[in-house]
Amino acid sequence: MCDLLLAWLGECSGYSPFRVQRHTAHGEVTGTTVDDEGTVLTEHSARLGSVDALIPPQLPLPADQSRILAERDGRLVGLAVPAVEKIPADSLDRGFTSAVQYRLRVRVGVDHPKDAMRDLLDQWIPTVESEVRDHGDPADTELFLRWPSRDIHMTPVFLDHGLLPVTVLAVGVLKEQGHPSVPADLELRLAGAGDLDFVHRMYLAERKFSEQFPGTIARPETEGLLREHLATRLADGDLWAWIAIRDGEPVGLVAVSPPSDTRLAKPLVSLRPNTYLECCCVVPGERGAGLGKLLVRLAHHKLGMEGVRAVMLHYNLMNPLSVPFWSSLGYRPLWTHWQRRPVLKTP
């Protein structure tokens, strides 16, 4: 799976455990065992699967990391593993996240899931706030939690804790389709290393527009880092990109990661093989005439020929163009990224 997807998901670099005591909001859970956690994980996966059939069974939380626990009547009903990552200044990841990201991975059972989530957040957030007050620059920090978009019952819990829905990881299920009809004056071809300038320009144009909304952060170093990143991938064949050319000039781009079935994608979507659509952008004079949709349909056709069953992509919930565009092409929210940036609320 491509580096840009890893950055969006917040899993590019190794996260460090964020130390909290193994406790609950209602006292110690005595005798908690691996079997107790296994029961919660089984219930958690079943619950999410009932909410959205495309959510696969979830992976166990790392056994060697500190937990936050939630219990009711002496029974474990939820657990979470907190982590923190300090992202280097020369990392492309910083274009998608704060310099310091505090992340929570949650598993809740079927008994009182909202109460369990509330307990876990009530313990985690004050601990992070205290850490941020005592160390570093509080401005370039964020809380991050990824949760299935269709589990709307958790929405008031997240909002009550100051978390906002910023970005969605959307999914499109590919269906058999032929090659799209291409106008006679338009040429579509694969991009190569010699197309770096145009590919870079389209990625930047998409980013510049996205920087108007939460979820994408404008940083001066991003342009150079992105060019270096794309140059390497185009040279290595690690980017499938198609360019639209009219009158000898490139006018549009769609780019996807080569189909992958990696560990990272496993807990995200049940359909495999799958891939990630990174960029779709056309030059200003071509917008609004259907070229973007044509490029996406071309990518769908090419990916379908390779046996790909699902395509994932990110868009910002506040973007007035992305939501209707991707919905019209069959994409719908799968996971929502809930964030609070910065961690400390403004008085």
Rank of each mutant, 00 (worst) to 15 (best):
S149Q: 06
L313C: 09
V282T: 14
V168C: 14
S328H: 11
V34G: 11
C281L: 05
H200A: 10
T155K: 07
E221V: 10
L291V: 02
S327Y: 13
A218M: 04
V40S: 01
A46W: 02
F18K: 01
L230D: 07
M117D: 12
L159A: 13
P56D: 03
T336A: 02
V311W: 01
K208H: 09
D64R: 07
A63G: 06
V343G: 08
E187S: 10
G162Q: 00
E228H: 15
W326S: 03
S210N: 11
L188E: 02
D238L: 15
Q58L: 11
P60Q: 00
R105E: 13
P138V: 04
F198M: 00
V81Y: 12
T275C: 06
V132L: 02
P258T: 04
R105A: 12
L48R: 13
Y15C: 13
R133D: 06
S322V: 13
G288D: 04
V40C: 05
G49L: 07
E278A: 14
S50A: 15
G78C: 09
R297K: 15
P88Y: 00
N274Q: 14
N319Y: 08
S16N: 13
G192I: 08
H200G: 01
I152F: 09
H112Y: 08
T232K: 14
L225F: 03
L143R: 02
H161I: 11
A193W: 04
L239C: 10
D185P: 06
V199M: 00
F158V: 09
Q65I: 03
A99N: 07
M117I: 13
P180T: 12
F213E: 01
T336Y: 07
P320C: 04
L5R: 10
W335E: 04
E211R: 03
R133F: 07
G248D: 08
R94P: 00
A184C: 08
P258C: 04
E306Y: 01
D64S: 11
I87H: 07
V282F: 05
H135P: 04
